[in-house]
Design a protein around this nucleic acid. Structure first.
Length: 517
RNA sequence: GGCCCCUUCGUCUAGUCAGGCCUAGGACACCAGGUUUUCAUCCUGGCGACAGGGGUUCAAAUCCCCUAGGGGUCACCA
């Protein structure tokens, strides 16, 4: 099979400089999907899901997943954005078989590097009349649009250069008059067979003779998209619903090139809380925002799976291997989904709690650094201490970003731990709190080393309460305030061990004094 | 406005293609209880939906029609 593919590959993609654009059956034995981001900004969360589904579909069928950079907009495209997008996929755990960085048999994978190919195809279409030159100026088109709108008509190109004689067209072009190249949309209608939506019909009368090549010679999206999908032998195009209306244009172009169009699937949109296409106003649209907010990538990817697809309606937490095994684009739902940050946070908590402790620690380091609590080297020096610190609060956070705030109390000055007002008020209700703290400060140094552990300490402390006839509740609350300044938080045994005897005693004494007045 | 798509709990969804197993299942969120030294985790329970109206059928969330609502798109952006 591989050998056959190679043969097909060379006949299709390699040398098309000559006469024939008429092609060319693609090797249907292999599923080839692609994600084609435009490097004009950060990777969109919806784009990430689109890529994920493309990836899963190909992976689940032994196919290939291709990354193509759509940088035909030279003004806005930036290499740093491309790098960031690739980095985003690596973070999510999505890999690609062909792409701008790894190359592949149908490269190059940046559209800006495929311009010769695009021009050759445009020339061919122009030569056989399937496309034509349009000499209308932007101003002219603006006026046309304005006039149509004034008459409450749908703005549309009126085909004014559609029937310009070939000789005149050639002459004006030769004379240097600027022109665009438009696709000649034939009469009739096109039915799109969409894997998710079924058959969708479009009357050609609704389609403009759209522009393939701009005045400056640069090709437009709908044009290059088809050229590259064809050359890269893409078999399944899975993309956002906003592209549905582009599809008949593209299908017609495939037909004009003598090619079978790929199988299409248009994914429902991911909506903001206002029910509209997600925008920066209604939520973080950039994937990196979720990384920066401390969500585990496994949670983000799992969450994305749940937007428009479900495993079985019962199991919500699953990994990429499961997705690959079970995913089918036909099972994707039709309706758009509103991004529910609460559910993402819940998933984040699930993953964070169940991963190896060391991973939680390592992933928390950037946030600890940002908060000024510790840097990587400091964590490495005291790794065991940090592991316990993380373990003590892991059930109390949902993201890595929440870690520093939970551990901040450990870095407060022992003589004056900041007291949360509610915690202090609650503590002052216990009449003998100050005395109790002072007594405990006396007791702590007498605890044997063997008992000074998170496992043994709870029993030791409770025994101490019992011996003195103290109520556990009346002791623990003041102690918690003394040691952490908070009303809630980790097991006190953990707090004691993390602080160590000396610091714990200092805090107990200080609090006894502060609460005694 | 034209064209196109969509419509099950507040949210994500199962069920719809092959009508009956659906007094519509799960999850998040919320509420209430339980466990616990607190908070959290965890456990139990509760609240809560087939957009509306016609048909077809013994039977409709599921099929057909209409209405309403929402969304997408109408660029020499992608």
């Amino acid at each position: 099979m591989a050998a056959r593919d190679v043969v097909m590959g060379s006949s299709v993609v390699g040398d098309r400089a000559g006469a024939s654009n008429r092609i060319l059956s693609r090797p249907m034995s292999e599923v080839r999907t692609r994600f084609a981001p435009s490097p004009t900004g950060a990777l969109h969360i919806g784009g990430a899901r689109t890529a994920l589904f493309n990836w899963a579909y190909a992976r689940g069928r032994g196919g290939r997943f291709v990354l193509r950079i759509e940088d035909t907009d030279r003004e806005r495209s930036r290499r740093e954005h491309e790098d960031a997008i690739l980095e985003g996929f690596r973070w999510l755990g999505i890999d690609w078989d062909e792409g701008p960085d790894v190359g592949g048999p149908y490269g190059p994978y940046r559209q800006s590097e495929r311009l010769e190919r695009h021009h050759a195809i445009a020339q061919e279409l122009l030569a056989d009349g399937r496309a034509y030159r349009c000499f209308a100026t932007p101003q002219e088109l603006d006026d046309l649009r304005a006039a149509q709108e004034a008459r409450k008509e749908t703005p549309r190109y009126d085909g004014r250069y559609r029937d310009l004689p070939r000789e005149e067209s050639d002459r004006r072009a030769a004379a240097g008059e600027p022109f665009t190249v438009r696709f000649r949309v034939p009469e009739g209608e096109t039915t799109i067979r969409d894997s998710i939506r079924g058959d969708v019909r479009f009357a050609h009368a609704e389609l403009d003779d759209w522009i393939m090549v701009r005045t400056d010679g640069s090709p437009t999206y709908n044009f290059v998209c088809v050229c590259d999908d064809a050359d890269m032998r893409i078999t399944h195009v899975v993309r956002g619903e906003e592209h549905l209306v582009n599809t008949p244009k593209q299908v017609l172009l495939f037909a004009a090139l003598g090619l079978a169009a790929p199988q299409y699937a248009h994914l429902p949109l991911i909506l903001g809380t206002d029910g509209k296409k997600m925008s920066k106003r209604t939520g973080d649209t950039a994937l990196v925002a979720y990384r920066d907010a401390g969500h585990p990538p496994e949670a983000v990817v799992n969450f994305l799976c749940l937007q428009g697809w479900s495993l079985d309606g019962e199991h919500e937490v699953f990994d990429l291997a499961t997705l690959v095994r079970e995913f089918d684009v036909e099972d994707v739902s039709k309706g758009g989904s509103i991004f529910d940050i609460d559910k993402l946070s819940w998933l984040s908590g699930e993953y964070l709690r169940s991963e190896p402790l060391d991973r939680t620690l390592d992933r928390s380091v950037p946030f600890l650094e940002r908060a000024g609590l510790a840097d990587g080297a400091a964590v490495e020096r005291d790794r065991e201490w940090w592991r316990l610190a993380i373990e003590s609060i892991r059930e109390r956070v949902r993201t890595y970003a929440e870690v520093p705030a939970k551990l901040e109390y450990l870095f407060a000055p022992d003589e004056e731990v900041p007291f949360d007002p509610a915690a202090e008020a609650g503590t002052r209700k216990h009449a003998g709190a100050s005395t109790t703290l002072a007594e405990l400060a006396q007791f702590v140094p007498t605890i044997p080393d063997a008992k000074w552990s998170r496992e043994e300490l709870p029993a030791v402390l409770k025994a101490w309460c019992a011996e003195g006839g103290r109520k556990v509740g009346a002791v623990f609350q003041p102690v918690r305030t003394a040691l952490t300044g908070q009303a809630g938080g980790p097991e006190l045994a953990d707090v004691f061990v993390l602080l160590g005897r000396d610091r714990a005693v200092t805090r107990l004494r200080a609090a006894a004094g502060r609460l005694g007045s």
